[in-house]
Computed example of a mutant assay.
Amino acid sequence: MHIVITGSLGNIGKPLTQDLVQQGHTVTVISSNPDKQREIAQLGAIAAIGKLEDVHFLTATLQGKDALFAMEPPNFEVPDHNEYYSTIAHSYVAAAKVTGLQRIVHLSSWGAHLEKGTGFITGSYHAEQILNTLQGVAVTHLRAGSFYTNMYSFADMIKHAGCIGANYGGEDRVVMVHPRDIATVAAEELTKQESDRVRYVASTDITASAAAKAIGAAIGKPDLQWITLSDEELAKALLERGMPAKMVIPLVELGAAIHSGAMRSDYDLHPPETMGTTTIEEFAQEFSVVYQE
Rank of each mutant, 00 (worst) to 15 (best):
G145Q: 13
D54Y: 00
L134C: 06
H270K: 11
E232P: 02
H90K: 14
A212N: 00
M1K: 10
I46A: 08
K51G: 07
P244E: 07
D80W: 14
D35K: 07
A212M: 01
F57V: 02
A155C: 05
T28C: 06
V139G: 05
A284E: 10
E194I: 04
T278N: 06
D268R: 04
N11I: 12
L190C: 01
S288I: 03
A208D: 01
A144W: 03
I3T: 04
S288F: 15
I46S: 13
E171T: 15
E194M: 06
A161P: 00
Q292E: 14
W110H: 05
G24K: 03
A96R: 08
L52P: 07
H141G: 03
L114M: 11
A257N: 04
H81N: 15
M243Q: 11
Q225E: 00
E273A: 03
E233C: 06
T28R: 04
A218E: 08
P73G: 04
P34L: 14
N75W: 02
K192D: 03
E253Q: 15
I215E: 08
V4K: 09
A257L: 05
A48T: 04
L269M: 05
T274S: 07
A47Q: 09
T59I: 02
T133L: 15
G169Y: 00
P272M: 06
I121F: 15
G123A: 10
V290R: 15
A48W: 13
T17L: 01
V174Q: 00
T133C: 09
E281L: 10
D181E: 12
P73A: 06
K116L: 10
M176N: 14
H126V: 14
D156C: 03
A187G: 09
A95N: 07
M275N: 08
Q135H: 15
V137H: 12
F147D: 02
A187H: 05
E83M: 12
C163S: 12
V201R: 14
T61F: 04
F120L: 04
Y168S: 01
A70K: 12
A47V: 07
Q102H: 11
A161Q: 09
H141I: 08
F57W: 09
A237G: 04
E83D: 14
T6Y: 15
L238Y: 13
V78Y: 11
Y152W: 03
D35G: 11
A138W: 07
E128H: 01
H25G: 09
H106V: 02
A186S: 12
P15I: 04
P34A: 07
V4F: 15
N167P: 01
N150R: 09
V198F: 07
T191P: 00
T279P: 11
G123N: 07
S153M: 08
I206W: 09
S32N: 11
I3C: 09
I46W: 02
S86F: 09
G255E: 03
V248M: 14
V98T: 02
Q42L: 05
L114T: 04
N33R: 14
L58I: 01
H25C: 13
G50H: 09
P271C: 05
